[in-house]
Design a protein around this nucleic acid. Structure first.
Length: 312
DNA sequence: TCCCAGGCTCAAC
DNA sequence: GTTGAGCATGGG
């Protein structure tokens, strides 16, 4: 099956799939290979079209929905352009969209992503999919479905530990158990708006899902666009660019401590949502990408931050 | 060898 | 309610 999706608004496939929201898409020769549901998909952007190739029948609506193409990005940009800095970052990564991933995969991925780095999340999760998922080959590229909660349960804690998930193994087991036994949770999370969905998710008391993981799950798995996850990078971006929004005590405290306590996390989260508005999640993702890239460029240069120069 | 990575849990105060 | 140690693992 081949499909051409016309893009009437900004979209950048590279920025979108290389922004730390997803862990399984692979870029091979200008095209991206990945899974949308149980369908292996090859996606190629040619100017303002998105070319889709798959063995399965895929509705254009499914593609649009997955890549967040139904978001009115121009309106979102207008809504979150609150200052010169964010405006410059939005310009730099124009077309980066929040995708709509499978909720269960998002649960699993962001429990795995706690206190580790993206590269390792990618390797461990892809390794697990190759073991427990169903193989789908597209143009000779091996792709796998994401293991069901039942498959994870059957694999047991020891299996996950052996595959490098470390102390998260029992948490992932617990998450699989909850998702397998309580379909109502997913349905309620889909239905509820951000704040109440967040409360519901944290009330589920699944271990490994704290403040930050919950926000990632709601943003990337349920498209709650208010959600503003604060990891180490976003925290750094806030210290660098938005300290003025907070009282000096909080800022001093933030600089001193490595990890963010629950109360501070929620204070910052609420303030940033208040500042950026109902599409705060989009602002967050652009700040995240910018902060990571500028950190890398510092390492690659002579202590001079090149990435920020063209911004301001 | 120590530090860090899309943090979180749990015990102690 | 707040704080801080401890946590699996691999890469720099």
């Amino acid at each position: 099956m081949r499909l051409t999706v016309c893009l009437s608004q900004p979209f950048n496939l590279n920025y979108t799939l290389d922004s730390g929201q997803t862990f399984r898409w692979r870029k091979i020769g200008g095209s991206w290979y990945g899974m949308i549901g149980s369908a292996a998909v090859k996606a190629t952007q040619i100017k303002s079209t998105l070319q889709i190739e798959s063995e399965e029948e895929l509705d254009e609506e499914v593609i649009r929905r997955y890549f967040g193409l139904e978001d009115d990005l121009l309106t979102i940009y207008e809504s979150i352009s609150k200052d010169r800095y964010i405006a410059a970052v939005l310009k730099k990564y124009e077309g980066l969209r929040i995708v709509r991933q499978d909720p269960w995969e998002t649960f699993f991925s962001f429990i795995t992503a706690t206190n580790t780095n993206i590269k390792r999340v990618e390797t461990t999760i892809n390794r697990l999919c190759a073991k427990l998922g169903t193989l789908k080959t597209l143009n000779g590229v091996a792709l796998y479905t994401f293991p069901t909660p039942q498959a994870i349960l059957q694999y047991r804690e020891d299996g996950l530990r052996a595959d490098g998930f470390g102390y998260r193994a029992p948490w992932l087991q617990e998450a699989a158990k909850v998702i397998a036994s309580r379909q109502d949770l997913i349905l309620n999370l889909i239905e509820q708006r951000y704040e109440s969905a967040r409360t519901l998710l944290l009330q589920s008391k699944i271990k490994g899902i704290g403040e930050k993981a919950a926000d990632c799950i709601l943003l990337f798995g349920f498209h709650k666009l208010e959600s503003f996850p604060i990891d180490r990078w976003v925290k750094q971006s806030i210290l660098n660019n938005y300290a003025r929004l907070f009282d000096a005590n909080l800022v001093t405290n933030l600089k001193a401590k490595k990890s963010l306590d629950r109360a501070s996390y929620n204070r910052i989260r609420r303030r940033m949502i208040e500042y950026f508005g109902r599409y705060a999640g989009y602002a967050q993702q652009y700040l995240f990408v910018q902060e990571r890239s500028s950190s890398r460029s510092i390492k690659n240069s002579n202590g001079f931050n090149e990435a920020l120069i063209p911004l301001l």
